[in-house]
Amino acid sequence: MKRFAFFPGCLIPARHPAMEFAIRSTLPKLGIEIVDLEGASCCPDPIYFKSKDKISWLAVAARNLCLAEDIGVDIFTNCSGCTATLSETYHLLQDLELRAQVNERLKRIGKEYRGTARVRHIATLVRDEVGYEVIRQSVVRPLEDLKVAIHYGCHLLKPSRIMQVDDPNNPTVLEHLVSALGANPVRHRNWYLCCGKACQTEEVPLNMMHDLLGAVCSEHADILCLICPTCYGQFDHGQMKVSRQFDEEFETPPIYYFQLLAFAQGVPYDKLGFERQRFKPECLRRFEMATAETAAPSSGDVHTE
């Protein structure tokens, strides 16, 4: 088992425990041991608190990285916002002058940032530390003929100088992750747009989401797969809002990738919290029926080994 520190952030543990459950259920099956970080705070968020005071933002982020450094493990995040903050902090603090300045602040709480803990988004982590083939082998319920639209969002890939994950102009990581489940990924024409949540006016995100949803819809995908809880909110609650405002029917259920993986690994549909979604991925139930016929009992425990 490879050990990694789990940085859950704020949104997933509080609002979307089903996503956290899915992460804790799927990673051990892929040979990854989750180490919980004691005393972690908000990353802090790269939109609001960063806009108030960048240096304080950097100091609190550095403290979170210190927690992983202190136990000698690398970090993975499960949200694009946390990924943005922690990856940028890691990158910025390679500048020794800035690091010294941040360490002046950390001295107040008896900590020192050393730059030894690497940060990765969970999607990148499983690609690099597990590999598509092992993911494929963990699937007991191949999602054959499931058409999955992909949403990359802002910060898995960009800025590529910092993230160094994939080609930001033609990424493939999510397509491969979805294919590993036996499903068919589809790229819609507005795939490069973000979710718009950070924007503090009505007009921009509303019109942007309208274009995004129009593109997703025209692919007739069964579901939309994403890797960030903020994007999820925009595509769940937000999708309803846009449908109402434009009087059009958008109804592609969004799914966080690790819930989809958990389902493909055999966790029952009813244990994955889908009933709380505004757009429910009922289309998945047909795979449950298919496996029930070929009889493969499966467990939905958190600490499956």
């Binding site: 802002c154 960009k158 800025p159 949540k197 921009v204």
Partner: peptide, 16 residues
Amino acid sequence: WQCTNCYNCHERCPQE
């Protein structure tokens, strides 16, 4: 505050 923090400009700028 209209900026969506998408980082596309960061990606595109030839002058960093």
